[in-house]
Amino acid sequence: MSLFGHTRSGQEPRAARSPLLWITLIASIAGLLVLAFAWLAGWIGRDRATAQTFTDSIEATGAAHPGFRRAHSKGVCVSGSFQGTPEGAALSSARVFQQPQVPVMGRLSIGGGDPHGADANARVRSMALQLISDDGQEWRTAMNSFPFFAVPTTEAFLEQTRAGIPDPATGKPDPAKMAAVQAKYPSARAFGQWAKTAPWSNSWANTDYNGINSFRFIAADGSERFVRWSMRPQAPFVEMTPEQRAQAGLDYLADEFQQRLAQGPVRWDMWVTLAEAGDPVDDPSQVWPEQRRQIKVGTLSLTSMQAQADGACRDVNYDPLILPRGIKGSNDPILAARSAVYSQSFNRREREIASGKAADATGKEGAR
C-alpha cells in the first residue's frame, strides 16, 4: 500500500471503499470520549465518588450558604512567616526549608458548614497555609485537629457524608445510618470515641494541627521518605470545660486569638513523622506506631489576623496537592479526593460571588 491509499493492483483498500466505516469509527470514539468526560464530571454514575457527588452530598448536610466554603465555612485569615531547620533541608530539597524566612498567608477555621456558628461549639479546628518561597515555588497545606481520618477510602468517605444528610421527615440525620457506617468501619468508631473523649483546647493557638495524609519528602540526592506532618503549638495546652463553651461568645476563638496576637507572635513547631517499611502510607485512618522517628523541620510564626470577608485568604483554595519541588503526594485516595472536592467547592463559591448570590447574615454580598 502506498502513502496515498492505493494498492499496487490499482484497487482501493477496503476502508477506502467503505467511508461509512470511518464515519462509524470516528463517531464511536467521539461518543466514548463524551461518556468518559461525563463519567469523570459526575453527570452519569451518580453513586460514584466524584468531586461533584461529594460536594453535592456535603451541601445536602446543612443549610445553603452561597459564597462560603462548603466545609470549614467559618474562619479568619492569618499571616506570618515560616523558618525551616537544617534537618528539614536535609529531608527535602524544597526551598521553604532553606530560605531564612518564607512569607505565610493562611486561615484558621472551625469544622462545619455554618459560617455563623458558635466557635466554641465546633469539635474540629483547622489550619490552612500557603507558603511561597523566593524561587516561586508554592506549598499549600490544610490540617485538622483530629489525629486520624475517620474512614479509609473515598467510597467510605462518601458513605459517611451521606449518612449525615438530614431526613426530611425529622430534619435530622438518621442515627441508624451513622451507626451503620461505624459498624462497617472500625476507624469511624475510633474517630467517634476521639470526638467524645479528647479534651477541648481553649484556643486556636494551643491546638495541634495534623496533616493526616502521607506525603513524600525528596532530598537533594533524590532519596525519598514518606512523612506525615503536624503543627505543634508552643503555647501550653489549656482545656476548655463544657461550662466555658456554653458561656463563650459567638466568635470566641477569633476574639481570643486577636488578644494573643496583641501580645506578640503565636508559634507552632512543624514536625514530620518518618514512615518505616509496612506502615500504611495510603490509609489516613490508620495511625503509625508511636515509636516512629520524628523530626522538627521548621517553625511557623503568625503575627496578624484579618476577617475572612475581605482578607487575603478569602479567594485561596488550600488544595493539599499544590506542592513545591521536593515534596510529592502519596497514593492516598483521600488526599486525591480532598484536592478534587476543594476545587469543586472553590469553583461553585466563586460563581456564586460573581453572580451576586453570596451574602452574609446581614445580606452583604461577597462575604466569605
Rank of each mutant, 00 (worst) to 15 (best):
F4H: 08
G5H: 10
Q11C: 01
S18A: 09
A27G: 10
I29L: 15
I29M: 14
G31D: 03
L33K: 07
V34I: 15
L35H: 00
A36R: 11
F37A: 14
W39Y: 13
L40D: 11
A41H: 02
G42K: 06
R46A: 11
Q52R: 15
D56V: 04
I58T: 08
T61N: 05
A63Q: 13
G80C: 03
S81G: 10
T85E: 01
P86T: 04
E87Y: 03
E87F: 03
A94C: 12
Q99L: 07
P100S: 01
P100R: 02
Q101Y: 03
P103S: 09
P103G: 05
M105Y: 05
R107K: 09
G112S: 04
P115L: 09
A120I: 07
N121D: 15
A122V: 05
R123Q: 12
V124H: 02
R125M: 13
L129Y: 06
T141C: 05
F149A: 09
A150S: 13
A156N: 06
E159S: 12
R162Q: 15
P166A: 01
P173A: 02
A176L: 02
A180T: 05
A180F: 06
V181E: 05
Q182L: 12
A183N: 15
Y185V: 10
Y185T: 03
P186W: 06
S187P: 05
S187K: 06
S187R: 02
P199N: 02
N202K: 05
A205H: 12
A205S: 15
Y209F: 14
A220H: 13
A220S: 13
D221K: 03
R225K: 10
F226G: 01
V227W: 01
V227P: 04
S230E: 12
R232Q: 14
P233G: 08
P233K: 06
A235S: 13
R245P: 01
A246P: 01
Y252V: 00
A254H: 05
D255I: 07
E256F: 03
L261G: 01
A262D: 10
G264L: 11
G264M: 09
R267E: 15
E276I: 08
P280H: 10
D282C: 00
P284T: 09
Q291N: 14
Q291A: 08
R292Y: 09
V297S: 06
L300N: 08
T303Q: 10
T303G: 08
S304C: 01
M305L: 15
V316T: 14
N317Q: 13
P320G: 00
I322H: 06
I327L: 08
N331R: 11
R338Y: 13
V341A: 08
Y342H: 12
Y342N: 13
Q344D: 11
S345I: 04
F346K: 10
F346S: 12
N347G: 03
N347L: 14
E350A: 08
E352Y: 09
A358Q: 08
A359K: 14
A359V: 06
A359R: 14
T362P: 00
K364A: 11
K364H: 07
E365L: 10
R368V: 00
